[in-house]
Design a protein around this nucleic acid. Sequence first.
DNA 1: ATTCCACAGGAAGCGACGGCCC
DNA 2: GGGCCGTCGCTTCCTGTGGAAT
Length: 447
Amino acid sequence: MVSTPSIEVVPKTAEQSLSTNTLIQQNQSCSPIDDKRSTIHLFDRTPQQKHLFINRELLSPSYIPEVLPHREKEINELAQILFPALDIQAPSNILLYGKPGTGKTATMKFVGAELQAHGKAQGKRIYVLHINCELCNSLYRILQHLGQQLINNSQDIIPLNGLSIDTLFTKITTRIDTCKQIIILVLDEADKICDDALYTLTRINEQFRQARVSLVCISNYLKFVELQDARIRSSLGEENIIFNSYDAEQLRDILTSRSEQALQPNILSDSVIPLCSALAAQEHGDARRALDLLRVSVELAERSHDHLVSAKYVRLAQNKIEKDRIAEVVRNLPTQERLVLHAINRLQQYYIRKKKAGAIITGEIYSHYRELAKAAHYTPLTQRRVADFLFVFDALGIITARVISKGRYGRTTEIAVSSTELAGILQDDELFEEIEQVKMKNQMKLL
DNA sequence: ATTCCACAGGAAGCGACGGCCC
DNA sequence: GGGCCGTCGCTTCCTGTGGAAT
């Protein structure tokens, strides 16, 4: 039996608190008796610990505040377009564009809630239904979700699959058309939907005699509508609202307004909010990022028993957020995708060791991945499939992929690892030990 | 101007899976 | 229980591509 390691439950400094994972790992080696003993006082608050938060939830990006600073124009515009719903007339379909964290979803939820409440007060049937198309990207999933939200408490559950699209479509449209009502269907991340689904949804009103459905598509991509079929383009883009990125000053206002409600007074040093705003403004004015930075900074200070959140914690928070994000992504990847990441990482380390200039290319990655897969007793996937993985890693921000032409020597993709934390994260991966012994067969070729 | 390389990436199709309907 | 459905992960096949080399 392994003896109990000396564990300090609450680290003294922010740096120490960042190594919480190590502490947890050490803790896992404790015996059941030791576990029991160590948890008795685990959640007792020490005298020097202080609540810095009043309500942590208010700094969560998903929280919709009562006031949305610097979005008054968009709110009014959206409300004007949706106004006919109060007369049980279908508003125009709307497109909301803007980069991530510019308040599109928050604004829509805010206006949607107001509209629904107004409708209810007037005894009108107005429903605003949100669907995240990242999760529901096919017509079947959208209809299933729509039906499920409409029936709500009924026992008539719509199955996740098994029905034909026609059956499901008839079932849902019949259910919607039972009375005179307006449904505002908000399709968040609408660019993730397949074309057929979008086309069917734009034509859905043809099925109704009483009810009406209006679409609100939210997208991060300005070219979203341009890429659609002409039939979809005409009916989708009836009204457009563009959400510009927040600048540092606007982000500062947002943070100030939220922190006044979410945090204890006088716990932020003067530089914290300007720094969080400036860092988030550099990332295309992402309010979510700014809120995350502030929340994590305060959490780190709280864990370090500090009564004042200084700029130091913002810097630490920035590193922690990035590392946590990549680690979370990597942890949830399937084995084959992690094998490809290991191949990329090993090649990167090899390039550094040998001081080899230039970027890693897909051919090298694929051949090294094959070696690793065989060594770990997995059947290697095709190069086509691996190319798709690389595209996904790029989208996730783990690598940067750039298609280049090497003239007579063909076309390829240059890969650079974007995250400085990747090597460390992969060392904790269960595959690491398994493939660590594998030598790079193509070492000479690579040089 | 043409050739050639090493892929990129689209399209089609396959098989497994979970689940419904008759 | 068999037929059917949509989805997902994957393969195979194919055409397209950019620019150095010829």
